[in-house]
Structures are given as structure tokens and as C-alpha cells.
Amino acid sequence: MSIQHFRVALIPFFAAFCLPVFAHPETLVKVKDAEDQLGARVGYIELDLNSGKILESFRPEERFPMMSTFKVLLCGAVLSRVDAGQEQLGRRIHYSQNDLVEYSPVTEKHLTDGMTVRELCSAAITMSDNTAANLLLTTIGGPKELTAFLHNMGDHVTRLDRWEPELNEAIPNDERDTTMPAAMATTLRKLLTGELLTLASRQQLIDWMEADKVAGPLLRSALPAGWFIADKSGAGERGSRGIIAALGPDGKPSRIVVIYTTGSQATMDERNRQIAEIGASLIKHW
């Protein structure tokens, strides 16, 4: 067993022997301040990774656009098919120029040779490549099948209805392509620590998230040296922004954090800054 596999296998073990965790309302004060600064709703939840206990939450059962955070769930569904012998990570998928959609920095470079399922998941999570996500959605049967996968996990809230990039439209009061912070946090925890996926697939999923290259201005910008984070960000229309993450000190994750916002007129930089400040408060009061 590799060191990384050992780390993920012992996530519940280490967490069980940690000192009790206590909620700190100071972080919620910052979440509410972010709402004021952005002029928009902000949803927040913080779960203990081992027990699933909610440590703090704000608007945990209000719907927010998922945006690209759905790509972690998508690759979880792909990995479940791999575990069941219905898919192979090494299978190569070929596609054409007509398949390319807006923001496809990886797939646009491989029109000639195609990409493997493993490479597509890596591109979808680490670079948020939209064509990679659409190609992977095709392998599982489309958005409705991802929703069905989530329902089978016990998540009857999260739903995907459309493809990239239309799913980022974020129309107010439109339930399409949305989740709730509580539902997303619980589902992410199941994917990373539950028995739904094999140990190898859980490790692969967290490795992809740990290698995320496009979430630097968010929670990662607030992390002290030595902290662990595996995350996936999302951005959408109407001032929408979000991030889902597993993080913790001492090089291992111990909490799940989900943050979503929508309806702001603020710039992307300002949305990023507010999420980073929430992260800084979380870490300060850990």
C-alpha cells in the first residue's frame, strides 16, 4: 500500500482519535458579512469528516447552483462504474471539434489522439474542462443518470439537468442544476469515506481534487503551510461562485467545507476574496 493510499485508508482512524471539535460562531459572522459585502445569498456548511456531524452552517438547506462543483460527483459516478466493471479508466475516447464547448483548455489539445477516461476526469476536476465533463456525462448516460446515481446514494436534493455550459445559467428560483450545502457536503463525505467506492477509487477521487489547479484564489489562499486540501470550485452566471473541499491540518483532511453564493453584482475577484476570507476565519478558529 502506498503512503497516499495509507493516508486515505486511515482518515477515519486518525479522526477518531482527534480531540473533540467545537464550532466557532466567528466564522458564521464572516459568512454573514460576506453576504453584506456581496449583496447576495451565501450558503455555508462545515462537517466533521469522521462523524458527519454538522459543526457550523448557514442557509444549509437553500438551493444554490452547483456550477462546476458537480464534476466531482460526476467522476465519482464514473469511478463507481469502474468498480462495477462497467468502465475502464484506460479506455480512450475520441471526439471532434464539434464536441468542444466553451472553456476546454485540455480537451482542445487532444482532438487528434483523444483522451482516456482517467485523463478526462483529471481534466474535468483539476482544470474544470467543460468538454471533458460533457464527454464523461455521455459515458454514464447524461445528466439524468448522474441525478439517479445521487438518488441511489441517498441524495434526493442534488440534481443535474443540463450539460456544460448551460448548467451554469443560475436563474433565480430555478431548481435545475442545483444542490443544497448540506446535501453536497453529505454526498461528498460519502464519496470520500464511505463504502460506495473502493479504496482505490476513493484515493483516485481525492487525488484529482488535491491536484486542483484553478481554485488557488479561494480556500487555498488562506491555508497555512502543512495543511491538506482537496477541492473543486465552480463559477456561473449572475454572480455565482462555489467551492467544495476536504481539508485539515497535519497533512490530512478532517472536515468537509461547502460554500456557495449566487445573485451578486460583485466582480469575480471580490467573490473570490470573500470566500478566501471565510476560509481564513475557519482556519483561525479551527
Rank of each mutant, 00 (worst) to 15 (best):
H5R: 08
I11D: 02
F13Y: 11
A15L: 14
F17V: 15
V21A: 15
E26Q: 10
E26L: 14
T27R: 03
L28T: 09
V29E: 14
K30D: 05
V31T: 06
A34S: 13
D36T: 15
L38Y: 09
A40Y: 03
L47S: 06
L49P: 05
L49V: 13
E56Y: 05
P60V: 12
F64W: 03
P65D: 01
M66C: 08
T69S: 06
V72P: 13
C75H: 00
A77L: 11
V78W: 03
S80Q: 12
S80H: 14
A84G: 14
I93M: 03
Q97P: 14
N98Y: 14
L100C: 06
L100Q: 05
V106W: 07
K109Q: 14
E119Q: 15
L120S: 03
C121W: 00
C121Y: 00
A123M: 03
T126N: 07
D129I: 00
L136A: 06
T139A: 15
I140R: 02
G141Y: 05
G141S: 06
K144N: 14
E145M: 13
L146G: 03
T147F: 02
F149Y: 10
F149D: 06
H151S: 11
R159N: 07
P165I: 08
P165S: 07
P165Q: 06
I171S: 14
N173C: 14
N173I: 09
E175F: 12
E175R: 12
R176E: 07
T178V: 05
T178R: 02
P181Y: 00
A182M: 15
A182Y: 14
T186Q: 14
L188R: 00
L191C: 07
L196H: 15
T198Q: 11
T198K: 13
A200L: 10
S201I: 03
S201Q: 06
R202I: 07
Q203D: 11
Q203Y: 09
K213M: 14
P217F: 07
L218I: 05
L218K: 02
S221W: 09
A222H: 10
A225N: 15
A230S: 06
D231V: 04
K232I: 00
G236A: 09
R238T: 10
R238H: 15
G239A: 04
G239R: 02
R241P: 00
I243C: 08
I244F: 03
I244Q: 01
A246P: 00
A246W: 06
G248Q: 01
D250H: 14
G251C: 09
G251N: 15
K252W: 09
Y260C: 04
T261N: 03
S264T: 12
S264W: 04
A266F: 08
M268S: 08
D269S: 13
R273Y: 12
A276P: 01
E277C: 08
I278L: 10
